[in-house]
Amino acid sequence: MAEHIETSNDVTVALPTITERIPTVVVDDAHVIYRVHKGASGGTSPVAALKRIASRTSAPNIREVHAVKGVSFTAYRGEAVGLIGSNGSGKSTLLRAIAGLLPVNRGAVYTQGQPSLLGVNAALLNDLSGERNVTLGCLAMGMHPDDVQRLAPDIIEFSGINQRGDFASLPMRTYSSGMSARLRFSIAAAKKHDVLLIDEALATGDKGFRKRSEQRVRELREGAGTVFLVSHQLSSVRDTCERTIWLESGELRMDGPTDEVLRAYEDFSNGK
């Protein structure tokens, strides 16, 4: 369907471009609630636990965090949407819900195809070498082993972990935090995506790597239908996104053109 419409647009370019807007991500009153284990604190004694079981109340060291509270919006093909908000406002959680990695408790998220989350937090095996992690990460993204073998040298080259000697064959636990973040980003960015969700990934690593990764994200954007970008660097949101959504403590505070939303957000953060 998508290809069909694009070609029909090519034929009729003479007309003013009021193209049909095709939604790719529809979020309908989504609520996400995390269950967090607080760790040892008051009320963990055996007697208290027995009392809880008898009275059928939930354990006090499990707290529910209502991270996203009833967010609704629609994103369309060809859009790049920025997500901003202070720490803990539910941006990353919302991205995970869109990616289908974290189920919503109420409401619904509908997507075109399978969105991919491009983050730096793809946990891998720290006891294994960088090379093996590349193979494992690519296979986990559903790549064919032949493709993995073909792409692996490029991924390691892109991450730049071999700039100071042969680190690719060392276990990942020996890496600096910057190096392992770079490798994770490189693995995640090696795949093509329909709907692309980028979580703070542009802030990773040193200046040279940041340039390379911004370039790669631009390439990925050209191939992807819709891009979401979570970032604390407002400049990168301004550069890449024409539309911005502002979340504050799990609620949608503003949704509109990037300039307007960023201005309001800056006023808000300065006024605090």
């Binding site: 009729t12 807007r21 939604p23 529809v26 990616a99 289908g100 619904a108 998220v109 997507t111 075109q112």
Partner: peptide, 28 residues
């Protein structure tokens, strides 16, 4: 067909109906 629709055909649809119209699937 895309260019003839000057009025938004999606106006008045709920989010769920909009998703169904374009064949979007529930995430995850």
């Amino acid at each position: 067909m895309a260019n003839t629709a000057l009025a938004d055909p999606d106006a008045g649809l709920t989010q769920a109906q909009l998703a169904a119209r374009y064949g979007l699937r529930v995430a995850g």
